[in-house]
Amino acid sequence: MNFKELAENLGLEEDEYLELIDLFVEVGKTDLDKLQSGIDDGNAEDVAKSAHSLKGASGNLGLMEFFQIAKEIEEKGRNGQLEGTAEAAQALKERLKAVAEFSRNA
């Protein structure tokens, strides 16, 4: 993750970008909780909604791998098929943790 480059792509200063990342991590945690409970309850609509939010934010910030996983979960949620979403959600959690870690050290 090269924050400087990602920031430049968006036409932002690095600290402006880091501010956005922190916000993303914070909001992402809530979204991930919602996603998890949606998966646990088998509520496909909640899954799609929270994944959509995660997808939009990550895509805008240029975190493309995160975006890709969230996008797949969203599609599965829309189609009412939640198989494999638990694993994908776990992957998102780990990635979000990594982003948080990275931001702290940046």
């Binding site: 036409g11 402006e16 501010e19 916000l23 939010s53 939009g56 934010a57 805008n60 910030l61």
Partner: peptide, 12 residues
Amino acid sequence: DNPVNQKLTKMM
């Protein structure tokens, strides 16, 4: 509604 997108778009 998404705080991240909101902030980013406003900045831009």
